[in-house]
Amino acid sequence: MSPELREAALLLLGCPEVPVQQALALHLLGRLRADGYAVTCAGNPAVLQLLRVSDPGRHYIGPAIEIERCIGELAEGKRAPALCVAFAHSDAGLTFAATARHLLPEARFVLLVFGREAEALAEEATFPCEKIVEKAVHNPTRLKRRIDEVFAWSA
């Protein structure tokens, strides 16, 4: 029986060109759901289709929304998740994350910064958040380990 879903969470996904994002998004979807979160994914049409195709039985992915529409709903107060996890491997990803952080001042906000320029990019993220930074591109293992530590899934 599925656990009762208690709180809303939002995964804010960036451009899918860096492979680790896909694996980590599915990992987070599974783990957060097991923790009782009702998770919505926001991203561009390509990234949402990648997730849907990867999960034909819909074991992990739930509601999904196009990212600009999601930002609009946050701005209008129609959506107020208790947790937001934002993926950023580019200036654009960081820009969307900064927007979501501003619109969700009360939420727990976890920023995953990855890709070849992760360290330089992370320095640009000056808004309040829990930052996880790894140069991961193809191999998600270290980033997954860091995520599991932050969410206390390591044990």
Binding site: C15, G43, E68, A92, T95, A98, T99
Partner: peptide
């Protein structure tokens, strides 16, 4: 709804408005 790192600068030049527009895969 504008997307951006605060503060977002919007310019006015006569009747024209200049503003940033960010797409996830294409930058700003």
């Amino acid at each position: 709804y504008l997307i951006g790192v605060p503060p977002i600068a919007i310019g006015v030049d006569g009747d024209a408005v200049l503003f940033p527009y960010t797409k996830p895969c294409h930058g700003t």
